[in-house]
């Protein structure tokens, strides 16, 4: 097991290297010039060129890559062109929103998705199951921004239960009631994702209930409830846990649309804004960090298999 973990961690190194090359070349293929963006409409070509030089953008592309990579190895992600501060600090600043939002959404997703999915599987093919299926299919088919806008109109503008937008820091202010700013975004995000988890839980429960050892357990005369909990649910957890792992990463970075609708200072929106501003170091930094996070979760998910399913052993 330990050897396996070491091997997996080591194999992340070439992957990260490849990721850094891909990210860097993608970003630098985007047409546009950060210096020009920064100076605005009235800047003369000479002024722009001079700023490009100051920013090191006039160096050959491979040189820029190695400077960037060298910096990262020393823990320095560079300086944001737009914010004039360290990219790492910018990311950490934004990470608070994204992590809180992802955590809140995933909590909702687990709280809704798993029990409803189990219920649906236990009452397989009943009218209840069919209604759940139809409903979850419906929620999985709604564009998130459309859902978010409607939530905002209803719960913020009409009912005034929740604030419309923004998110004042919780960690800086210590004011946990600020989490109320994230309730609507979390609901928006969890609607389609819970729907997917409902369906996944249901289908993996059904798959597991047909497995041999489950049949044996039933044959032994164990009660249906015990079988469902001990054997079926436990085994179906594997795919659910792995899906939740990836949903979490997707939620950290893939909430661009929701963050835009609710104007949240999160990582996803930062990428879009940085793209429009041509803030190369910031985009590169975020995407690389998120890719790293994804690889870590991937590893954790694989390892969790071993804990949840005694049949899987890594050597």
């Amino acid at each position: 097991m330990f050897a396996y973990i070491v091997r997996r961690v080591l194999s992340m190194i070439p992957s990260l290297l490849l990721a850094s090359i891909l990210v860097f070349s993608f970003i630098h293929m985007i047409p546009g010039d950060p210096a020009q963006m920064m100076l605005g409409d009235m800047a003369t070509p000479e002024q722009t060129e001079a700023l490009r030089e100051t920013m090191g953008l006039d160096r050959p592309i491979y040189a820029q890559y190695f400077i960037w990579l060298g910096g990262i190895l020393k823990g320095d992600f560079g300086t944001s062109i737009f914010f004039h501060q360290s990219v790492w600090d910018v990311i950490v600043d934004r990470a608070e929103t994204s992590l809180f939002l992802a955590a809140m959404s995933i909590t909702l997703i687990i709280a809704i998705g798993v029990p409803v999915g189990v219920l649906s599987a236990v009452r397989c093919n009943s009218a209840l199951d069919q209604s759940i299926s139809a409903l979850s299919m419906f929620f999985a088919s709604i564009p998130t921004f459309w859902l978010g806008l409607n939530f905002m109109m209803l719960f913020s503008v009409s009912l005034k239960w929740f604030p419309t937008s923004g998110f004042p820091s919780v960690l800086a202010s210590g004011d946990w009631t600020n989490l109320r700013y994230l309730v609507l975004p979390a609901l928006t995000l969890s609607a389609p994702n819970s729907a997917l988890i409902v369906r996944l839980t249901r289908s993996s429960m059904l798959d597991a209930s047909h497995a041999d050892h489950v049949r044996t357990a039933r044959a032994k005369g164990l009660s249906e409830g015990t079988v469902n909990v001990r054997h079926v649910f436990r085994n179906s957890l594997i795919s659910v846990v792995s899906a939740l792992g990836f949903t979490f990463v997707a939620l950290v970075a893939g909430t661009v649309v929701t963050e835009t609708v609710f104007s949240l200072p999160g990582v996803g929106r930062l990428v879009v804004e940085s793209l429009l501003r041509r803030d190369y170091p910031t985009i590169q930094g975020i995407i690389l960090v998120v890719a790293f996070l994804y690889m870590c979760i991937n590893l954790l998910v694989d390892l969790s298999f071993a804990f949840l399913d005694p049949r899987i052993r890594y050597s």
Partner: peptide
């Protein structure tokens, strides 16, 4: 000064008192 890029959100924010 709070950046709120989406005009619809700015409008809703004023209506809701944010």
């Amino acid at each position: 000064f709070i950046p709120v890029p989406d005009a619809g959100t700015r409008l809703n924010g004023v209506k809701a008192g944010d």
